[in-house]
Design a protein around this nucleic acid. Structure first.
Length: 259
DNA sequence: AAGGGCAACAACCGCCACCTT
DNA sequence: CAAGGTGGCGGTTGTTGCCCT
């Protein structure tokens, strides 16, 4: 794998390439409960990563329907046309390519397409084609049309959630979609009770301070004592059932008192 | 066969926009 | 209105594999 070697930052959070176990934990958690809050999520998913790293991993690799490699000619052409019109707006371009992440498109552009475009433009044999493309661009990928394309893509994320099969759908709860048409997006406010429930549930976490360090939002631990979370509440993978049962307990609590 | 250079790409980092309080 | 929290975007880096000499 072409990635950085694993390491640990000052907060004990892992950096570098993701292991299969980490992927499995993150995928299992989000599939079941959605990404309700990226900063808190890794603690509950049992992953020693910062929220930002989890988000990136999910968006670029673990999302349902995500595709890798082998860009089609149509995809390449669309990237080139849109890049010609809107520049490095990778997220907007990615919105037009279902299953492709902005990061992958960005990488693909830098490693393949940029060179291709450059050589196309400098190759005299392509001068005619270039002019033709520009004409076509104004027809096919003109500014208005690209904007319209981008606007129409707002439901892309929803379409992903629609097509995703939740492995535990029968365990429907306020935190899990009751049907495949439900969004997995959950507001943080709906989760306000989460911590207090878990704390009261067997006093697993003795203290949870609101006054954690004012360092970096993405990388600093959410709980005052990360070790407590990792070693006590977030048990190793062989105790995943415990995590799920605790989360389900919360779900019941939520449906009983918060709905 | 060795090793230097380059390509590919996963992941990190900083910044910004938006939302909530 | 200001400040803090959060999500998202785009630029960049770092590592590894491959190719060429």
């Amino acid at each position: 794998m072409m990635a950085r070697t694993p390491c640990v930052d000052k907060n004990g959070l892992r950096k570098g390439p993701w292991s299969k176990e980490e992927d499995d934990k993150l995928r299992a958690y989000i599939s079941r409960y959605g990404h309700w809050n990226w900063r808190e999520l890794p603690k509950f998913a049992g992953v020693s990563r910062c929220g930002k790293s989890c988000r990136l991993r999910w968006m670029n690799y673990l999302r349902p329907n995500i595709k890798h490699g082998n860009f089609t000619k149509e995809e390449e052409d669309l990237i080139i046309i849109m890049h010609n019109k809107i520049g490095n707006k990778w997220a907007k371009i990615a919105a037009e390519l279902p299953g492709r992440s902005d990061n992958e498109i960005k990488n693909y552009w830098h490693t393949h397409l940029k060179k291709r475009v450059k050589s196309d433009q400098t190759d005299p044999k392509n001068m005619h084609r270039e002019t033709k493309n520009q004409t076509e661009s104004s027809d096919i990928g003109g500014h208005d049309e690209v904007e319209a394309l981008c606007a129409s893509s707002s439901s892309l994320e929803l379409s992903f959630t629609n097509t995703h099969e939740y492995p535990n759908e029968t365990n429907s709860s306020p935190l899990t979609p009751s049907s495949s048409s439900a969004s997995v997006e959950l507001t943080s406010s709906k989760f306000m009770v989460h911590d207090s429930l878990i704390m009261s549930s067997g006093d697993l976490i003795q203290t949870y301070s609101d006054e954690y360090d004012d360092g970096n939002f993405w990388t600093d631990p959410f709980f005052e004592d990360l070790d407590v979370v990792n070693n006590v509440f977030m048990a190793p993978s062989d105790s995943d059932e415990f995590i799920w049962s605790t989360m389900d307990l919360y779900s019941e609590y939520h449906s009983q008192f918060m709905m």
